[in-house]
Each structure stands twice: as C-alpha cells, then as structure tokens.
Amino acid sequence: MLIVGEIHTALLPHSRPLTPEEARGALALAVGETVVQWARPVPHTASPTLLHGVDCRLPLGPKPGNRHADDAAGGSSVRAVGTVCSRAVLTGGHLLQGSAWTAVAPPQQPRRMPWSYYLARPGTLETIGNFEARRLAEGYLLADGQGKGLARKVRHDGGTALLDAAAIARHSVHDVLSRPVLDQRPPIKTGSTRLRWAAIADPGEGRAVAFRLVGNDRRRMSLVTGLVEPEQIAAAAEDLAVHDWLLSAVAARIALAKIGEDPRHTLRTLRPVVDHLLHLWSAGARTSRDLEFMWDSLERRPGLTRQWTTMTERVRSQIDYGAADLAAKMLDMMEERQKQTGGAGEPHYR
C-alpha cells in the first residue's frame, strides 16, 4: 500500500497561544464532529477529518534502470479516483498545520466506478491502470507544485490534473485563519514550511526513512514501513513537520539577532523565541510505536534534537549575557550620575 500526503506549517497569527477552549472552537471545522485534544506533553488539538473527492492523475517516477526517462515532468501518469483526508492541527496553541493524506490502492475494478463506490472507501484513491508503488511514490515527491485544484480539474487536452495535496492542506488552514478569535498579530515574524511525504507500507520490506530539505521552505520525506494505518503515518509526518519548522524558525531568528554587535537588538530579537517557541519541542510525542524507528533514524543523522539543544543553549546564553551587559551599563550610568550630582543621591525629576 502507498500513502502520500502534504503538510503546511506556520505560526498562528495571534499575539498569544490559544487556550484549549479557543483552540477547540477554532478547529471545529465540521458541525457535529469531534475535535480531539491532548494536554501532555504539549497541548495539541486536531480538527475533525474532512474528505475531499478527487478525480486526478498521479505522476510516475522513472522506470527502474532508466533514471532520465518518464520523469514526473514528462507527463507519464496514472489516473486515480477517490477521496483525500484533511485536517487542521494546532500545537501549543501557536503552531498551525494543514495536513492532507490518502492511501493509493491498486485497481479493484477495470473501469471508473460511480462515486458511491469510492465514498464507501474513505481516504483511499484507487488507480485506473497499473499500480507501481515505488514509481508512484517517487513521481509524487518530484511533482511538488504541479497540481492545479482540489477535485477534478480538466486540462485543455481533456485530461485530468495532477493530485494537488497542497491545495487540500491549505483548505483547512484557511478555514482556521478566518476565525474571528484571531487578532492577526503574531508575536514573531516567521515563514511557513511545506512537507511532502510518501510512505510504502509493506511488511516484506525493511523499514527506512529519508528526509530532505528542498530550498528554504520545502521538504520531502519518504518512508518504508510495515502495515500501519494511514492516519498514524500522517500524524508522524505532522510531528516531524512541527519540529522541522521549530528548527527553521529559531535558526532564522538567531541569524537576525546580530549576536556580538548590538546587545539590545539581540535581546529584542531572541526574547520572543524564549517566550513562545522553546517550550514546544517534544520530538516523537505524536508518533505511534510502530513508527518510532523514524525518529530513531533522524536523531542519529542529521540529529534534530542535538541541533535544537545547541541552538536553544545559544539563545539562552545570549539573553543571559545581553541582560548582564545591559545591567552593567545601567550601573555605570547610575554611578556616573551620582558623580555628577556630587554623591547627593538621585536628581529630582518632575
């Protein structure tokens, strides 16, 4: 079985973390459906899962032994019909994610079936034609940004567009951002990240994970797992996306802090990181036991928690040094003022 998905992660545009009650209201995206919340180790809220019907094409990667032909941009693809799951996720009341995923299955019927057939298999796309899991996974990862719509989109040549998981993920984000509870004043100016992922669930294969940065804001992850529920794989990918965003956001603030040049600017730049981000690190907290190997591998190389520890120690030390430096300057100013007034104490101000 093949499972594919995409996750968009960004800071919620609100001046403070949402309370659990506010988060539950903001993520109530479907009337009558339950919003799920966890309190530990970090507050976490997940909206109800929504379904989106799609009739699309899935790009194929290169054929084995031919790395230069039939690439995703060349038009080689397979038609697929079914539904894609999506949800919004809020971590620590601050970090908002839009997540979309679906399982891709081999055809059970030789032709395109009525929608009732696909709606009876929620969260599954069934291919019409050959099913090659590895080529589909590789093609999906390489075709980032080529999709054009949520559901069926007809091209000028009469074909259907590629699956646009990015648009489906953004759909949940936009629903949350329209809530009136948000004051549109984020405490830190940060960017967003996109993680596109593909997992092959095959008990006969060895488990493996590969994670790659693609430019400033895009990431790709490929997984080989045993038989695991698609939602569990999506939750593990969301967990990784949150922590990758934290690493990126804190690294960006450190780069802007002018460390060693202007202590006051350094304090102003890094203080919001301490107030709003440093307590959110809890790598693996939302990852099921069957997928813990993913974090075990990533902690060995590239070593995400080691990088986080190094950066957070640097942030805290700079704030301590900066505060001590500013305090010393204040004492020098007070001593100089006392000398100017002849030691008679502080001057009187109206």
Results as ranks from 00 to 15, higher is better:
259 I>F: 02
260 G>P: 07
260 G>A: 06
260 G>F: 02
261 E>I: 02
261 E>R: 13
261 E>K: 12
261 E>T: 12
262 D>G: 02
262 D>V: 00
262 D>F: 00
263 P>Y: 05
263 P>N: 04
263 P>T: 06
264 R>P: 06
265 H>T: 05
266 T>R: 09
266 T>V: 06
267 L>M: 14
268 R>N: 07
268 R>C: 02
269 T>P: 00
269 T>E: 06
269 T>F: 09
270 L>D: 04
270 L>P: 02
270 L>R: 08
270 L>V: 12
270 L>G: 00
271 R>L: 14
271 R>P: 03
271 R>N: 07
273 V>D: 01
273 V>I: 06
274 V>N: 06
274 V>Q: 13
274 V>H: 14
276 H>V: 02
277 L>Q: 04
278 L>N: 05
278 L>V: 13
278 L>A: 08
278 L>S: 11
278 L>E: 06
278 L>M: 14
278 L>D: 12
278 L>I: 14
279 H>L: 02
279 H>S: 12
279 H>E: 04
280 L>F: 09
281 W>C: 07
282 S>V: 07
282 S>K: 05
283 A>N: 10
283 A>E: 11
284 G>H: 12
285 A>R: 02
286 R>K: 04
287 T>Y: 10
287 T>D: 03
287 T>F: 03
287 T>C: 08
288 S>N: 08
288 S>H: 03
289 R>H: 13
289 R>P: 10
289 R>D: 14
289 R>V: 15
290 D>W: 00
290 D>V: 04
290 D>R: 11
290 D>A: 13
291 L>W: 01
291 L>F: 06
291 L>M: 12
291 L>V: 04
291 L>A: 02
292 E>M: 15
292 E>V: 13
292 E>I: 04
292 E>Q: 15
292 E>N: 10
293 F>P: 05
293 F>I: 05
294 M>Q: 14
294 M>W: 09
295 W>L: 10
296 D>A: 11
296 D>W: 11
297 S>V: 14
297 S>I: 11
297 S>C: 11
298 L>K: 08
298 L>G: 09
298 L>W: 09
298 L>Q: 02
299 E>Q: 15
299 E>K: 05
299 E>S: 11
299 E>V: 07
301 R>P: 05
301 R>L: 08
302 P>A: 07
302 P>N: 05
302 P>H: 10
303 G>S: 03
304 L>C: 01
305 T>F: 04
306 R>C: 05
306 R>E: 08
306 R>L: 10
306 R>F: 07
306 R>M: 09
306 R>T: 09
309 T>I: 14
309 T>P: 03
309 T>L: 14
310 T>Y: 06
310 T>V: 04
310 T>R: 13
311 M>Q: 15
312 T>E: 15
312 T>M: 08
312 T>H: 11
312 T>W: 06
314 R>V: 03
314 R>A: 07
314 R>Y: 00
314 R>E: 10
315 V>Q: 00
315 V>C: 05
315 V>S: 04
317 S>G: 03
318 Q>C: 15
318 Q>N: 10
319 I>K: 02
319 I>C: 09
319 I>R: 02
320 D>Y: 05
320 D>Q: 13
320 D>I: 03
321 Y>E: 15
321 Y>M: 13
321 Y>R: 15
321 Y>N: 15
322 G>M: 01
322 G>N: 00
